Simulated scan of single mutants.
Amino acid sequence: MPDVIIPGPEGRLEGRYSPGEADNAPIALICHAHPLGGGNMENHTSVMMYDIFRKRGFATLRFNFRGVGRSQGSYDQGLGELSDAATALDWVQAYNNNAPFSWVAGHSFGAWVGMQLLMRRPEVAGFISVAPPTNMYDFNFLAPCPASGIILHGSEDKIVPYDDMERMMSKVRVQKGIEIEREEVPGAGHMFSNHLEELEKRIETYLNRRLPIVIEERKNQRPRR
């Protein structure tokens, strides 16, 4: 799990990178929660999602947005952070030219950034979004959503109530054959304190079911960038 420094749009971006187990390993990018709310790549949710993909043999990267940790720059209302995420994905792809597809996972603000990224990058084949802040940011950019994924949200989330997420995401249009699943995690709040094991279990269950479908769909396709 080496530390890495990535040349970013506003200077260096700090990251943790785990190479894939195979020459054609898929890619996973992990985006952390809000920089001004204590979000960073060492948050428990980010580390947990990183470990899930790493253990599955993905070339996996988690990183700090600009202005967090040793990453240079300052908070940019999401615009700069989306550019950071795109740069981080470019960096991983440069070391994994044979990757058949990529996956994005994010918590809260990071989920919002990750879902914007997948709209711009056809190589992103799926997503994991934990507690997306649907009452704080506009999600109408998902028009239509091009990749299947899952949203996991705590029933006791006081920052982004589950009903707010459900109301927004139920209206999202998707491309043919695409499905956005939504699951409520009983008792969990926005940070999933004391509920990380349940969150991990649900992510693993989803990936066990979904990844074989993605692999089958893309095994005869060349990487798209």
Score class of each variant (00 low, 15 high):
residue 194 N to S: 15
residue 177 G to L: 02
residue 98 N to W: 00
residue 140 N to W: 12
residue 197 E to R: 14
residue 64 N to Q: 06
residue 100 P to A: 11
residue 219 K to V: 09
residue 144 P to I: 06
residue 86 A to K: 12
residue 60 T to P: 09
residue 167 R to D: 13
residue 118 L to C: 03
residue 90 D to E: 15
residue 16 R to S: 11
residue 91 W to P: 00
residue 160 V to N: 06
residue 133 P to R: 01
residue 153 H to M: 10
residue 180 I to Y: 07
residue 151 I to C: 14
residue 8 G to T: 02
residue 105 A to K: 08
residue 8 G to R: 06
residue 169 M to T: 12
residue 41 M to V: 10
residue 24 N to H: 12
residue 140 N to V: 07
residue 58 F to K: 00
residue 186 P to Y: 03
residue 41 M to L: 12
residue 57 G to I: 10
residue 83 S to V: 13
residue 78 G to F: 05
residue 43 N to H: 04
residue 98 N to Y: 01
residue 131 A to N: 06
residue 137 Y to F: 15
residue 71 S to A: 01
residue 73 G to V: 04
residue 136 M to H: 14
residue 4 V to A: 03
residue 77 Q to T: 06
residue 8 G to Y: 08
residue 101 F to W: 14
residue 65 F to T: 05
residue 74 S to T: 15
residue 86 A to P: 00
residue 126 G to T: 02
residue 88 A to G: 02
residue 189 G to Q: 05
residue 30 I to S: 06
residue 161 P to A: 09
residue 176 K to H: 12
residue 188 A to H: 04
residue 87 T to Y: 04
residue 94 A to N: 12
residue 53 F to P: 13
residue 202 R to T: 07
residue 91 W to Y: 13
residue 1 M to E: 09
residue 189 G to T: 07
residue 207 L to P: 01
residue 10 E to L: 10
residue 209 R to H: 13
residue 189 G to P: 03
residue 30 I to V: 15
residue 155 S to A: 15
residue 220 N to Q: 09
residue 191 M to H: 09
residue 208 N to M: 14
residue 49 M to C: 02
residue 216 E to L: 13
